[in-house]
């Protein structure tokens, strides 16, 4: 009865459950969390928008100096392709969990708003 042994061992050890909201959660270093942008580096080229597989990014471009980079977290697949495609290393995944929302349609994050001057 080796299952008996396994059961007794399990009983003697502490449970394996992660008590997340009431206890700490270990997030690995490479975890792909919320999208963040380094506004200094971003030039509004649109490479990330072209390669995004989930239409989670949008670039509204009036001119070279006047553009908005918009992120839709509810559409985003958190695949990391934008981070890969960006030639200047501006857009990236942070390590933070993405908080849920009740209204996914209205969930719009303006990553960079450059108005011409």
């Amino acid at each position: 009865m080796s299952i008996l042994k396994a059961v007794i061992n399990a009983f003697r050890k502490t449970p394996d459950t992660v008590k997340y909201p009431y206890g700490p959660l270990v997030i690995p270093k490479g975890f792909r969390g919320a999208i963040v942008i380094d506004t200094e580096k971003c030039s509004g080229c649109g490479l990330c928008v072209r390669d995004c597989p989930a239409a989670g990014l949008e670039l509204i471009k009036e001119s070279r100096q006047d553009y908005q980079l918009i992120h839709y977290p509810a559409r985003c697949a958190y695949c990391g392709q934008c981070e890969d495609s960006c030639a200047r290393g501006a857009i990236s995944h942070s390590n933070d969990l993405v908080e849920p929302t009740y209204d996914s349609d209205e969930w719009v994050v303006v990553l960079k708003h450059q108005s011409g001057d």
Partner: peptide, 23 residues
């Protein structure tokens, strides 16, 4: 856990790209 640690995703690893791997 191993896969999440090295690739960043537990189920959707996004480890591959055309021409190699990401990490």
């Amino acid at each position: 856990d191993i896969m999440e640690e090295v690739s960043g995703g537990r189920v959707s690893h996004a480890a591959n790209q055309i021409g190699g791997v990401r990490f």
